[in-house]
Amino acid sequence: MTAQDFILKSYNSNVENGSVKWASPSNIALVKYWGKKEGQIPENPSISFTLSDCKTITQVTFSKKTGNNFSFDVYFEGEKNEAFKPKIQTFFERIETYVPFLKDYYFKIETSNTFPHSSGIASSASGMSAIALCLMDIEQSLSKVEVDNDYFNQKASFLARLGSGSACRSIEGELVVWGNNESAEGSDLYGVKFDGELHPNFHEYQDAILLVDKGVKQVSSTVGHKLMFDHPFAKERFSQAHNNLAKLIDVLISGDLKAFVEIVENEALTLHAMMMTSMPYFILMKPNTLEIINKIWEYRAKNMSNICFTLDAGANVHVLFPKAEKEQVYEFIKSELVAYCQNGHYICDSVGNGAKRL
C-alpha cells in the first residue's frame, strides 16, 4: 500500500448535506516513538494499547457550498472554539489530495471528550482520529466505489496520522503497531492492528492515569520530536526501540508479565532521557512523578505485583496492571498515590477495541 492508493479518484458532487458521528479513543504507547521524518513519518516503530473510556466524540455536519476555500467551524463542549481552527486548517491542507471534496462543503465540527478538559490527557490522538473517521464516513457517502473495512480503517489511520502522528494508533485495538519493523506487520503510513495471538494475561489490561500536572507543557511534543534531528543518542535510541518492540511482541504472545514490566518501564524512562539529553535539554517529569514511580517500585517488590508505569511526554503517570490485580491496585492508588495527584484526580481506564460509529 502506498499513499497514492488513498487518493479518492471520483465522487458524487451532487450530495447536498449530511451528518456523521464517531467516538475514537486515546492510546498509550508501550514502545515509544520520538523523532519524526517529513510527512509525519516516525523515526522508529511503536506499539500502543488502545484505551476504552478516554475518548473523543465528534460529529461532523456538512453542507454544499461555493468557492475554492476551506470552510469550517469548530465547537468544543458546545462552545465555538477559534483556537482549534489553525490545527484543523493545517490538517485539511495536508489531506486535501486524498479527500478532494473538502473545499466543496462547509463543515461544522462538534467535539467533546469523555475525560476532563485540561486533565493532562493528550487529546490529539483521539481528536484527530475522530475527525479522520468522520471524513472517511463522508467519503463513503460520496464515493462511487465501495471499499472494505480494512481499507476504510487504513485510510482513516493514514489521514489521522497527518493530523497527529499517534492518532493513527487510535482507529483499532487492542494493540496497534505503527512504523516499519521486522517483528510484526507494520507500516509508516498507518497503524496496523497487532495480529499475534495475545496472551490472556493482557486481555482487559488496566490503565489508571494519575494526573500529576494539568498545566501546559514547557516544551511541546512537536518541538521535542524536532530535537531528535541532531541528538547525540538518536541512532542508538531508534535501534533500541526496534529491539524492544521485538522483545515485547514475544512477551505479548507468551504472557511474561515480568518481562513486560521491564520493557515498558525502560521505554518510558528512555523517552524522558532523550528529552534530558537533547540540546536544549528539558525535563517534563515533576517531583510527584518521581514520588509515584518510587512508590510503585516499593509496592511491586513488597507485594510480588505485576504493576508498572509508563509515561507520555509529560508529568502524568499511566499505571498499568492486569485485571486480576484491579481491586488491590486501586486500593493502593487511593491510599498511597492519590496524594501526589493534582487535586487528587486520576482516571480509571482499560484496554479497548477501537473507534465506533455512533
Score class of each variant (00 low, 15 high):
residue 4 Q to G: 08
residue 5 D to C: 00
residue 8 L to F: 06
residue 10 S to P: 02
residue 11 Y to F: 12
residue 14 N to C: 09
residue 17 N to W: 15
residue 24 S to C: 11
residue 25 P to I: 08
residue 38 E to W: 12
residue 48 S to I: 03
residue 50 T to V: 12
residue 55 K to N: 12
residue 56 T to A: 12
residue 64 K to T: 13
residue 72 F to G: 08
residue 73 D to T: 06
residue 73 D to Q: 08
residue 74 V to E: 11
residue 75 Y to S: 13
residue 78 G to I: 08
residue 80 K to T: 14
residue 85 K to W: 04
residue 87 K to I: 03
residue 88 I to C: 03
residue 91 F to Y: 06
residue 94 R to I: 00
residue 95 I to Y: 04
residue 104 D to Q: 02
residue 106 Y to K: 06
residue 110 E to Y: 01
residue 113 N to H: 03
residue 132 A to C: 01
residue 133 L to A: 12
residue 135 L to Q: 01
residue 137 D to S: 15
residue 138 I to Q: 10
residue 140 Q to P: 03
residue 152 F to S: 01
residue 155 K to S: 05
residue 160 A to R: 04
residue 162 L to A: 03
residue 164 S to I: 01
residue 166 S to R: 07
residue 166 S to C: 04
residue 169 R to I: 02
residue 177 V to I: 14
residue 180 N to H: 09
residue 184 A to D: 11
residue 187 S to Q: 02
residue 193 K to G: 06
residue 198 L to M: 14
residue 218 Q to C: 04
residue 219 V to N: 13
residue 223 V to F: 04
residue 226 K to T: 09
residue 230 D to A: 14
residue 235 K to D: 12
residue 236 E to I: 01
residue 237 R to H: 05
residue 240 Q to W: 05
residue 243 N to A: 13
residue 244 N to A: 13
residue 244 N to W: 11
residue 244 N to D: 05
residue 245 L to Q: 06
residue 248 L to E: 09
residue 249 I to M: 05
residue 261 V to A: 03
residue 263 I to W: 05
residue 265 E to P: 06
residue 265 E to K: 07
residue 268 A to Q: 08
residue 272 H to P: 12
residue 274 M to K: 04
residue 276 M to I: 13
residue 281 Y to V: 00
residue 282 F to S: 01
residue 282 F to N: 01
residue 287 P to N: 01
residue 288 N to Y: 12
residue 288 N to G: 02
residue 297 W to C: 06
residue 299 Y to L: 05
residue 303 N to G: 13
residue 308 C to G: 10
residue 311 L to F: 01
residue 311 L to W: 03
residue 312 D to K: 05
residue 313 A to F: 11
residue 313 A to M: 15
residue 314 G to D: 03
residue 315 A to G: 10
residue 318 H to P: 08
residue 329 V to T: 09
residue 334 K to Q: 07
residue 338 V to F: 02
residue 347 I to D: 00
residue 348 C to Y: 10
residue 352 G to R: 10
residue 358 L to V: 13
